[in-house]
Design a protein around this nucleic acid. Structure first.
Lengths: 183, 183
DNA sequence: CTCAAATGAGACGTCGATGTCTCATTCAAT
DNA sequence: ATTGAATGAGACATCGACGTCTCATTTGAG
């Protein structure tokens, strides 16, 4: 069975999101190709992870574009963003935890761009009076990634229904657990 | 230099929380003991991780006890819980991501107990009208762990100030990012 | 159909981490 | 001071994953 390089990447992403220590052999099996062919596409494990990172960045830049973060209220934009992000939530979870390992290494420039876009969205929300100003932009950004990743894991483990993903992430992120009076 | 078994465990926890792929040799160095001695304490890497898991469970059971989850409002109890959890937030982050790897293996019974206590706290909050009922108990529990771990990482990376840890976690978890009218 | 390119399966050799072992040294209790 | 236990350093074999290579087979374009 022959697969496009992108299809291989997506299969690898699906596997590695669940089992980040999976062997190259397991990745090849999961992609339905031979290990040799996998090595023909990606020089090694590092190259594979780097390619996954770039796939993720591509996907999320696309998702950010589709979410039209500048339109409507910041809250509406954030809702669209979570919705657009859902298909790649597992990949995000993988990349976020993977990035924890890179200590000294410089962070991929693409992440900086994405962080800046998220941060700008939260900033707009704060300036327009929709979001709290006592939570730092950096923390709101991290919390968004964290909640998406956490919920992706919870869905994988069956603790949260897949259909509830968007609702759970966005409602907790926006409204929190406290029951407010006007609700 | 001789170290107590528990001191070794804490040193290992501190290292592995930041670099989960650290070598047994690195762990030994970090603990200030020889690799042979490390092996005398823990049969192997698996045994070390299992011991770390049990240390974590012990610590968190203690933290839960000190937080007196049954007293006061659920919100107050949750605030105390986050405060008591902070010293071991890195360990929690490590164990949560590590647990993602155990696929078929059964989950440690201690986690089930802890999950039940957190879940019961959120349930109490829902029944007393303090917490929203449209967010499932399982999700609230996962989100608590996720936000603690995410914030622990953010602090390690310097994106969030250590002194803000409790505030950022509890405020986002309870109130969310939205600016509500009565605040 | 023909043939060149790509693939899959497997056989290597390499390397790093692991786990065991030995032995000299240190530590602590007596 | 003496002695037995614990430790640190290092040697050693093992094992798993990796990366490269070969070769028979398949694929696909002409």
């Amino acid at each position: 069975m022959a697969m496009d390089r992108d299809q291989v990447l997506r299969a690898a992403a699906a596997l590695l999101s669940r089992k980040s220590t999976a062997t190259m052999d397991e990745v090849a099996k999961a992609a339905g190709i031979g290990r040799a062919t996998l090595h023909r596409h990606f020089a090694g494990r590092d190259a594979l992870v780097k390619a996954l990172e770039e796939l993720g960045i591509r996907e999320f830049e696309g998702a950010f574009d589709r979410a039209r973060l500048a339109e409507g209220t910041a809250e509406e934009a954030l809702r669209r963003l979570v919705a657009e992000t859902e298909p790649n939530a597992q990949l995000l979870a993988f990349l976020v935890t993977e990035n924890q390992l890179f200590e000294g290494d410089e962070v991929h420039e693409g992440w900086t761009r994405l962080d800046a876009r998220v941060s700008a969205l939260f900033k707009r929300g704060q300036e327009e009076g929709d979001f709290r100003i006592d939570l730092s932009l950096a923390w709101l950004t991290e919390a968004l990634y964290g909640l998406i990743g956490t919920c992706a894991w919870a869905v994988m483990d069956g603790r949260v229904a897949a259909k509830d993903f968007q609702y759970m992430v966005i409602e907790l992120l926006l409204g929190g657990a406290r029951r407010s009076v006007e609700k």
